[in-house]
Design a protein around this nucleic acid. Structure first.
Length: 433
RNA sequence: GCGAUCGUAGCUCAGCUGGUAGAGCCCUCGGUUGUGAUCCGAGUGGUCGCGGGUUCAAGUCCCGUCGGUCGCCCCA
């Protein structure tokens, strides 16, 4: 062995966040609250593996491949089958589809499930964009036909979940793709994809710029462009004249959903026809969510929509669904960086029991045990160091109470409130904060 | 993947037109005997991202490379 050992200087891996205990405590509390709201509406928890077969993940065929992380052994078998390659899932909707197809016979429909897991995307990290992050999904899947009121329910559920974690005002922006797609069909636009992609950027770039692009780059006529921009900017659904069946259907659905969300605060849900969600598999209702009190971040913290046929790639059944996903880590990190999160304690302990000396360890340990038996989180200090040092430890870990077992036989236990400095005699079998 | 910008102690940073490194925080110890936060003192800690070049001399200039951050693409 050489005298100088090699030190690998630790550094964060970009896009793979980790928090200190005082923030992890908050993160856990948030997850618990969201879970409670999901369950209050009868959504059941499932967890799927971190990996799926690559073929399953790419079955939808869209250009998600570039963000998929593939899993392989360092020394892979040369003749390992390529078709069975595993990859980390990039969302929870595709695994859900596979799950539902696989367990179809054992599930009861409508299947309402929530899932809070990490997902991975191989993209360049940015503010609010990670390569590893939690998503909290809820979805409802049914056979053949899924009532439209679920489109309102999932929105209401996530709104309530977000409300429960005290993050300021949020706003759901809701649209229905049938409206814009219907209009484009009526206008004779053959390829709606590039149009929807730019309409999605309407708020960011502005109507003037989008008009310029749609005419100049996409090749629409000024008339087509005006018709589309008029629609995308229209706030009042009753002022829209449906040009065909598809538009009429979309309008009816969206009106119904908005009507069902009337119980939310005024800012809570808004119809916004510029929301189209790029080139996703969504076919009807689509959602995005803005943090109204963090204007510096304009991205969506919670998105989703309805899909006509969720699992068609995996099973010969017609399974429509609607779902929405909280971008949990994005939400957490954006608020953390905006200084809107009050960090929790550095330790879950409520009481630190002082260890006066090795001889008194038994007495101290018993006091700790008595307190724990009555539900408290209690840490026994690890070494008989100077009392001031032990208290400094409690101070630094924000442990609110320090317990003094008797230093000599016959003395009383005492407990000190670290916030106000008060110290009183106490019995470990009956004391409570 | 493309563009811009940055890279000095564990953290946040200073170091002017080149002369072989500093502050604050953190950490450890101390300011005597069983009581924290403040204050004071001392100490640990860096091959200045890495490699090459210019120069008597480079953290400081030049080139390359790697990494971070931001923007674009895309999205939670």
């Amino acid at each position: 062995m050489s005298d100088k050992k090699k030190i690998y200087k630790p550094k964060p891996i970009s896009g793979f966040p980790e928090w200190l205990p005082e923030y992890r405590a908050v993160e856990q509390a948030w997850l618990d609250k969201i879970r409670a709201v999901f369950e209050s509406y009868g959504y059941a928890s499932i967890e799927t593996p971190s990996v799926e077969e690559l073929d399953v993940l790419t079955a939808k065929g869209e250009d998600v491949d570039k963000e998929i992380y593939v899993l392989e052994r360092l020394q892979a078998d040369p003749d390992e089958k390529k078709s069975a390659r595993l990859a980390l899932h990039f969302d929870q909707t595709v695994p859900l589809a596979r799950y539902v197809a696989q367990h179809f016979a054992e599930l009861t429909f409508p299947f309402k499930r929530y899932q809070m897991q990490k997902v991975w995307r191989g993209e360049r990290p940015q503010m609010g964009r990670m390569r590893e992050f939690y998503q909290c999904d809820i979805d409802v899947i049914n056979v053949d036909k899924l009532p439209i009121h679920f489109d309102a329910e999932v929105a209401a559920v996530v709104y309530e979940a977000l409300e429960s974690i005290d993050i300021g005002r949020v706003q759901l922006r809701i649209s229905n793709r049938k409206i814009l797609l219907g209009l484009m069909e009526a206008l004779g636009i053959e390829d709606p994809v590039p149009v929807t992609r730019f309409i999605d950027k309407l708020e960011k770039l502005g109507a003037k710029e989008i008009k310029h692009i749609l005419i100049g780059e996409v090749g629409l006529t000024p008339e087509q462009t005006d018709a589309i921009l008029d629609l995308a900017g229209q706030q009042d659904l009753s002022k829209i004249k449906p040009q065909n069946e598809m538009m009429a259907e979309g309008l009816e659905e969206l009106s119904f959903v908005m009507d069902q969300l009337k119980h939310l605060p005024v800012h809570g849900a808004r119809a916004d026809l510029s929301i189209v969600r790029g080139l996703d598999y969504y076919t009807g209702t689509v959602y995005e969510t803005q943090l109204l009190d963090v204007p510096e971040f304009t991205g969506s913290v919670c998105s989703g929509g309805r899909y006509d046929d969720l699992a068609g790639s995996y099973i010969n059944k017609h399974l429509p669904g609607v779902g929405i996903s909280i971008g949990f880590t994005r939400l957490f990190d954006v608020l953390r960086q905006a200084n809107k999160i009050q960090p929790g304690p550095k330790s879950p302990a409520q009481v630190l029991v002082v260890l006066p000396s090795e001889e008194r360890r038994t007495v101290a340990a018993e006091a700790a045990r008595n307190l724990r038996e009555r539900g408290m989180n209690v840490e026994l200090y690890h070494a008989p160091q100077k009392i001031g040092k032990q208290m400094g430890y409690a101070e630094k870990k924000s442990i609110p109470f320090v317990w003094f077992p008797p230093f000599e036989d016959g003395q009383d236990h005492e407990v000190k409130n670290m916030e106000n400095g008060e110290q009183t005699k106490a019995d470990p079998k009956s004391w409570s904060a």
